[in-house]
């Protein structure tokens, strides 16, 4: 999965228009994020042909996360043409199934 940072975020997410971009905002101390990660990798295998998968380590890229208005983990965002199309906040994610449901809406 593509690792985002402040150098590549604009090119890979904001200015990217080919397909929707799914970004997994996670942190090194976020247990729920770490548990979800293998499932997110599986989702990439399933949906990766029509949705670009990326992750952002917020522990290393705090300012970038805050600039995206992300201050809680885990947060999952789908960007379409550089705009936030859907945001899943932690309360909306009880299992990977919730992430999959969001992805299905962009898998066209």
């Amino acid at each position: 999965m593509l690792e985002l940072n402040k150098e590549n975020f604009d090119a890979e997410v904001i200015n990217y228009t080919e397909k929707p971009v799914f970004v997994d905002f996670w942190g090194e101390k976020c247990q729920k994020c770490l548990e979800l990660m293998p499932d997110v990798h599986k989702l990439e295998e399933k949906y990766g042909d029509k949705i670009k998968f990326a992750s952002l380590n917020t522990s290393q890229n705090r300012r970038l996360a805050i600039a995206q208005k992300v201050l809680g983990l885990p947060t999952m965002i789908v960007y379409v043409n550089g705009e936030k199309a859907e945001v899943l906040t932690p309360d909306k994610i009880s299992s990977a199934a919730d992430i999959e449901e969001m992805l299905k809406r962009f898998y066209k």
Partner: peptide, 18 residues
Amino acid sequence: LRARGVSYCATCDADFFE
């Protein structure tokens, strides 16, 4: 404002508030 400053998990989110 959940996950935009309102949190219920300090270990998850403390990093943001350094």
